[in-house]
Design a protein around this nucleic acid. Structure first.
Length: 878
RNA sequence: GGGACGUUAGCUCAGUUGGUUUAGAGCACUACUUUGACAGAGUAGGGGUCACUGGUUCGAGUCCAGUACGUCCCA
């Protein structure tokens, strides 16, 4: 078969992915095998693939493919979440393009359009994951608004409400004034923003004195209900218990004290606006302050502001400054940079802290099993540093605002009567029956369901069990078999919003952890260390990258740069490293295929035996290393291990050792072994680079199976003696080549090699390889130095290279001298240690022994080199 | 302001309970090598007072304290 010059990734990708699908390799059903279950962190249904997904899903695919090859029943469940805000924004945009205003639609009409959008554009990202080669069980694709899933979310709400864990209250939330909805904390993006810090003075009641505060939000002074100073602040002690007058509106507010105030920030006096600042609100609660809400839902000033009513908050800020100046209240203005929250979905919109009537979960009632499970490592975090972060958050847990003023999502199952009383129930009828108990005359049509829907995270926290219908159909075969799942791979950014809550839901509804391990990936950054984001435009087009470099090279590129648990600085050039790697072993494939037709039985005269048995041992050794690395989630490191095994051990050493001369035949057994090694190498690399490895596996020879499902076999127990001999052989080859190089011998020029050693029998097993690798026409053993040769010392053995070329002695001598200097320096440091009585007395005996051995070795080597140098001088004089 | 994590070669990182050769890898760099799998290659080479300052110890990249810088989280 004619082999193409290069690997054709496009042809291979479509061919093999379809083949795997046709064979249903990724589909899983419960059976007697051990399950290995992974649920995908569901991307937004509006999402498109970016580098973060690429990293995250490559890691999951590696874990899943490896588990599958280890004979486990691997099940990786795909799906998306409905992403209330993001999707609603997309739908509104679609409607706008068609000239339809959302406000002109009923809820049902709007939802019809939303489903239309979802069916047409949603889940593009799942198709993109196929391009990456992800081995997901597509039959299990789940959406957080699937009928059963939807009902489970509703039932969980009702259950939590009935348990008394859910309540409705007016509290501070993040408010998106454009979308007019509450936001969760993670939907708020903090950005460093240049602002002005205004110093304003408030008159002290009953005196002619003033107190000056600093604020970036002068338009909210009408909502001030106190001024707060630090109790120990000497400057303000005389103000304790007094009252101040808010400029322009002349409200009388108390001056309170609290240690919350930072004395050296601003003026040390803080205006307190409980309706418009999270911290101020807490202060307000603590000190029982009045709450004056001066903003409308759309961010304009309300009637309670008394002035500038109807103006947008930012227009009001501009307008109030001259007013304050005129009133003599503005003391000074300075530049100030601080973090301001913006809405994730409306990036230009500054989020408004706002008092609002919302639904909350009282987290203190459900968090404790989730904390315990992680602390006691029933659920293990990788890297473990995230345990601390998790504990800190859990121990300071705040109630969770779960209502959103949106239509796209699970509608809150609460029904209200005209007087505002309500009932939580699965259906309107049940709610009506409940409410009738206190209001006997109530008609069913008199009650109205809550307009709001639930936070998307309130559905995705059920993900690990509800993808198997573990709540909607408890006790089914799937949930019994697959739950708890094994590994969750996710970004540390959502440790609280998703990971922690899934653990809580798992214990609350399955009485069991949702997963055993959580692997937190790093954040993908660009070369300059900036986080990849749409706004910066530094996020590459992944599909274009896959098109250009191939999925395997892209997967390699991101994994090689991805240290466990750290952020990764991603650079497009890492894809080139992937391409080069593929080319390297594709060329090896070409070499091996060249030998296919040149096999000859019983040809081997012992030359290749060592190479074959070394490669076998080396492979087993690496397999053991890989097992450990996978246990520790050191995936980048294990890829490096495989990379080096293929490039250095297999291509650079092994293939050179067994390579027959130009157009010469190869021993049939050696060829057979070589093909098997190649297959095994492709097999261990397969989880990282599935396409090219499958392609090569089938090109090497006719196969009955596919690599994707081929079981990994445990190798033999590595023989250390053979491994050590190979290390010696490599060291000798390198040193001799170096010597040849320095003596400027041409590669084609043959030499005669004389070896002075006490382990001649060891060299007998490797001398053919050695001779070939250093281009020696003859190898002999000697007990005395050979004159007029290049001398090389490796460990305790000496090598004399006899050549017909005139030798440049100075270069050799310099090299020997350099080695000698190093060894003497080294010896000195060892001797210093050994002559230290305290060291010999205190250190462990085996450590002292090691030092003694180091000393002896160094002395031996020095002796050998000094001899050589002496011979040199002797020869030089001749 | 509170907390977490980090700082090792030009770049990205290893360095597992303190002692296996006066610190390792990949990439990049330099020199040499092109009819023989591979120049997107081969062979070899140069490159680090392990951020800084103290401390513990016979011994510190490794442990402790502080300083500087950086990143992230929370407020």
């Amino acid at each position: 078969m004619e082999l193409s010059k290069n690997f054709d990734h496009q042809a291979a990708e479509s061919k093999w992915y379809q083949h795997w699908l046709d064979k249903r390799y990724f589909n899983s059903k419960p059976d007697s095998r051990e399950p290995y279950t992974v649920v995908i962190p569901p991307p937004n249904v509006t999402g498109v693939l970016h580098m973060g997904h690429c990293l995250n899903n490559t890691i999951q695919d590696i874990l899943v493919r490896r588990a599958r090859m280890q004979g486990k029943n691997a099940c990786w469940v795909p799906g998306t979440d409905h992403a209330s805000i993001a999707t609603e924004a997309k739908v509104v945009q679609m409607l706008r393009e068609r000239g339809i205003a959302k406000s002109s639609l009923s809820r049902d009409e709007f939802l019809k359009y939303a489903w239309e959008w979802k069916d047409k554009y949603g889940g593009i990202i799942l198709q993109q994951l196929k391009k990456m080669g992800c081995s997901l069980d597509w039959d299990r694709t789940t959406f957080t608004m699937d009928p059963d899933y939807y009902q489970s979310v509703i039932n969980v709400f009702i259950d939590l409400y009935n348990k008394g864990f859910i309540y409705r209250a007016k509290r501070m939330i993040n408010w998106d004034v454009k979308a007019k909805t509450a936001l969760s904390d993670e939907e708020v993006i903090r950005k460093e923003t240049l602002q002005k810090l205004y110093h304003l003075r408030y008159a002290i009641e009953g005196t002619d004195k003033f107190v000056t505060i600093a604020t970036v939000r002068p338009e909210t002074i009408m909502g001030d209900t106190a001024i707060c100073v630090h109790p120990d602040d000497e400057r303000y002690k005389e103000l304790h218990g007094k009252f101040a007058i808010v400029p322009l509106v002349n409200r009388r507010i108390p001056i309170i004290t609290d240690e919350y105030v930072t004395m050296d920030f601003g003026t040390g006096a803080l205006k307190v606006t409980p309706a418009h600042d999270m911290n101020d609100n807490q202060l307000g609660q603590k000190h029982n302050l009045e709450v004056v809400d001066i903003l409308n839902d759309d961010g304009t000033l309300s009637a309670d502001a008394q002035i500038l009513v109807g103006e947008d908050r930012f227009a009001a800020r501009k307008k109030i400054i001259p007013m304050l100046e005129e009133a003599g209240a503005l003391v000074k203005t300075e530049d100030y940079t601080s973090e301001v929250g913006y809405s994730e979905r409306n990036p230009d919109v500054v989020v408004e802290p706002k008092l609002s009537l919302q639904w909350w979960i009282e987290m203190k009632k459900i968090y404790s099993p989730a904390l315990k499970a992680v602390m006691e490592e029933e659920i293990k975090f990788f890297p473990p540093k995230f345990k601390n972060l998790y504990r800190h958050w859990m121990e300071n847990i705040k109630d969770w605002c779960i209502s959103r003023q949106l239509w796209w999502g699970q509608q809150i199952p609460a029904w209200y009567t005209a007087d505002g009383s309500f009932a939580v129930a699965a259906t309107q009828e049940k709610a009506w029956e409940e409410l009738k108990k206190t209001q006997p005359d109530l008609k069913m049509t008199d009650i109205k369901q809550d307009e709001d829907c639930l936070d998307t995270w309130f559905s995705s926290w059920l993900w690990p069990f509800e993808v198997f219908k573990g709540y909607s159909h408890p006790g089914n075969e799937d949930i019994k078999y697959y739950y708890p799942t094994n590994t969750l791979v996710t970004a540390p950014e959502i440790i609280f919003f998703w990971v922690a809550r899934m653990i809580m839901a798992g214990f609350e509804y399955k009485q069991e952890k949702p997963f055993s391990e959580v692997y937190f990936t790093g954040i993908v950054r660009d070369k300059q260390g900036r986080k990849m984001s749409k706004q910066l435009g530094n996020s590459p087009d992944l599909l274009a990258l896959i098109d250009q470099y191939g999925a395997d090279a892209v997967r390699f590129g991101i994994m090689i740069a991805s240290p466990a648990g750290n952020d990764l600085m991603w650079d497009e050039s890492s894809n080139e490293q992937g391409i080069n790697f593929i080319k390297k072993f594709w060329n090896a494939l070409k070499l091996v295929k060249m030998w296919e037709g040149r096999q000859q039985k019983d040809l081997d005269n012992g030359k290749a035996n060592f190479a074959v048995s070394w490669m076998e041992n080396r492979l087993s050794q690496v397999k053991q290393q890989l097992d450990q690395q996978f246990k520790d989630f050191r995936l980048s490191e294990s890829l490096k291990t495989i990379y080096s095994l293929i490039w250095d051990d297999f291509c650079s050493w092994y293939l050179e050792w067994v390579k027959p001369g130009f157009e010469q035949p190869i021993d049939a057994d050696v060829y057979e072994k070589t093909v098997s090694f190649f297959e095994e190498l492709m097999q261990i690399l397969h989880p990282y680079m599935p396409f090219v490895t499958e392609e090569i596996y089938h090109t090497l020879r006719e196969q009955k199976d596919d690599l994707t499902v081929k079981l990994l076999e445990t190798g033999i127990t590595p023989d250390n003696k053979i491994l050590q001999t190979a290390v010696l052989l490599q060291e000798v080859i390198t040193s001799l080549r170096d010597a040849r190089n320095k003596a400027q011998l041409k590669p084609k020029e043959t030499v005669k090699l004389h070896i002075l050693t006490e382990q001649a029998d060891l060299y007998a097993s490797i001398e053919t390889i050695l001779a070939k690798q250093v281009n020696a026409e003859a190898v002999s053993y000697t007990s005395t130095p050979v004159n007029n040769t290049i001398t090389v010392v490796v460990q305790k053995d000496k090598f004399f290279i006899e050549t017909t070329t005139e030798l440049d002695i100075t270069a050799q001598r310099e090299q020997l001298q350099k080695d000698l200097d190093y060894l003497k320096g080294f010896l000195l440091s060892v001797e210093k240690k050994l002559s230290n009585e305290k060291f010999v007395a205190n250190a462990k005996p085996e450590v002292v022994d090691v030092e003694r051995k180091k000393k002896a070795d160094a002395e031996d080597k020095i002796k050998v080199i000094e001899e050589s140098l002496r011979e040199f001088s002797a020869n030089g004089r001749e």
